[in-house]
Amino acid sequence: SKDTIRINGIDIDVKDLHEEWKRLVEEALKRGDEELAIELLERALKE
């Protein structure tokens, strides 16, 4: 798994994120759902 995830052309540092969150965000991006990916990231970062 990578340490960054690219959303809207912005590389976001996710190395401190739990693997499960990372996977969910990557799944959302694979489906092209950037809005969901951002929402998941925000939730993950609050934890």
Rank of each mutant, 00 (worst) to 15 (best):
Asp16Ser: 12
Glu34Leu: 12
Glu26Gly: 08
Asp33Met: 10
Asp16Met: 12
Leu17Pro: 01
Lys2Leu: 14
Arg43Gly: 04
Leu24Asn: 02
Asn8Arg: 11
Glu35Asp: 12
Ile10Ala: 07
Asp13Lys: 05
Lys30Arg: 14
Leu36Phe: 08
Ala44Lys: 02
Arg23Lys: 10
Glu47Ala: 11
Lys2Gln: 14
Leu29Gly: 00
Leu36Met: 11
Arg31Asp: 08
Arg23Phe: 06
Arg43Gln: 12
Gly9Ala: 03
Ala37Val: 06
Lys2Arg: 12
Lys22Val: 15
Glu47Asn: 10
Arg31Ser: 08
Leu36Cys: 08
Ile5His: 03
Arg43Lys: 09
Asp33His: 08
Lys2Gly: 14
Glu34Trp: 11
Ile7Ser: 01
Ile12Val: 11
Glu19Ala: 12
Asp13Ala: 06
Leu29Ala: 03
Ile38Asn: 06
Leu45Thr: 06
Asn8Gln: 09
Leu17Asp: 01
Ser1Gly: 12
Glu35Ser: 12
Ile38Phe: 13
Glu34Pro: 12
Leu41Trp: 06
Ala28Ser: 03
Asn8Asp: 06
Asp33Glu: 09
Glu19Ser: 11
Glu35Ala: 14
Arg23Met: 09
Leu17Met: 08
Glu27Leu: 14
Ala28His: 02
Lys2Tyr: 15
Val25Tyr: 03
Asp3Thr: 09
Leu24Val: 05
Leu29Glu: 00
Lys46Arg: 14
Lys30Leu: 12
Lys30Met: 12
Asp11Ser: 07
Glu42Ser: 11
Glu34Phe: 11
Ile10Thr: 08
Trp21Ala: 06
Lys2Met: 13
Arg43Glu: 07
Asp33Asn: 12
Trp21Gln: 06
Asp11Glu: 10
Gly32Thr: 01
Glu26Asp: 08
Leu36Ala: 11
Leu40Lys: 00
Ala28Arg: 00
Asp11Met: 07
Lys15Cys: 03
Lys30Ala: 14
Ile12Ala: 02
His18Ser: 15
Ser1Thr: 13
Thr4Asn: 05
Asp11Val: 09
Ala44His: 05
Ile38Thr: 08
Leu45Tyr: 10
Leu24Gln: 10
Glu27Ala: 13
Val14Glu: 02
Leu41Gln: 00
Ile5Ala: 02
Ser1Pro: 11
Ile38Leu: 13
Lys30Thr: 11
Ser1Glu: 12
Glu35Gln: 14
Lys22Trp: 09
Leu41Phe: 05
Asp33Pro: 01
Asp13Leu: 08
Leu40Asn: 00
Glu19Val: 10
Glu39Asn: 12
Leu24Gly: 03
His18Lys: 11
Leu41Val: 07
Glu27Cys: 14
Lys30Phe: 14
Glu34Tyr: 11
Ala37Glu: 00
Lys2Pro: 15
Lys30Trp: 14
Trp21Val: 15
Ile7Ala: 02
Arg23Asn: 06
Leu17Ile: 13
Val14Gln: 02
Ala44Asn: 02
Glu47Ile: 08
Arg23His: 06
Arg6Ser: 11
Lys15Trp: 08
Asp13Cys: 07
Ser1Asp: 12
Glu26His: 15
Asp16Gly: 14
Lys30Gly: 11
Glu39Thr: 13
Val14Tyr: 07
Lys2Val: 13
Lys46Gln: 12
Glu42Arg: 15
Lys2Ala: 14
Glu27Thr: 05
Lys15Tyr: 11
Glu47Arg: 04
Val25Arg: 00
Ile10Asn: 07
Asp11Gly: 03
Ile38Pro: 00
Leu41Ala: 04
Gly9Ser: 05
Ile7Leu: 08
Ile12Trp: 15
Gly32Trp: 03
Ile10Trp: 07
Asp3Met: 03
Leu17Ser: 01
Glu39Lys: 15
Ile7Val: 11
Ala44Val: 04
Arg23Asp: 03
Thr4Val: 13
Leu17Thr: 01
Asp11Lys: 05
Arg23Ile: 07
Asp13Ile: 08
Ala37Gly: 02
Trp21Lys: 02
Leu45Lys: 13
Leu45Ser: 07
Gly9Asp: 05
His18Pro: 14
Val14Met: 10
Glu39Arg: 15
Lys46Val: 08
Glu26Tyr: 15
Glu34Ala: 12
Glu20Asn: 15
Arg31Pro: 00
Glu39Gln: 14
Asp13Met: 09
Lys46His: 09
Asp33Tyr: 06
Gly32Glu: 03
Ile5Cys: 02
Asp33Lys: 06
Arg31Asn: 10
Gly9Gln: 04
Ser1Trp: 10
Asp3Asn: 10
Glu42Gly: 09
Val14Ile: 15
Leu41Ser: 01
Ile5Tyr: 04
Glu27His: 05
Leu40Tyr: 09
Val25Phe: 05
Ile10Phe: 07
Lys46Gly: 10
Arg31Lys: 10
Leu45Arg: 14
Asp11His: 05
Arg31Leu: 09
Val25Gly: 00
Leu29Cys: 03
Glu39Gly: 07
Arg6Phe: 07
Arg23Pro: 02
Ala37Leu: 05
Thr4Tyr: 11
Lys15Gly: 13
Ile12Gln: 03
Asp3Phe: 01
Glu20Leu: 13
Ala28Gln: 01
Leu41Thr: 03
Glu26Ala: 14
Thr4Gln: 06
Leu40Met: 07
Val25Ala: 02
Ala28Ile: 03
Glu42Cys: 15
Arg31Met: 13
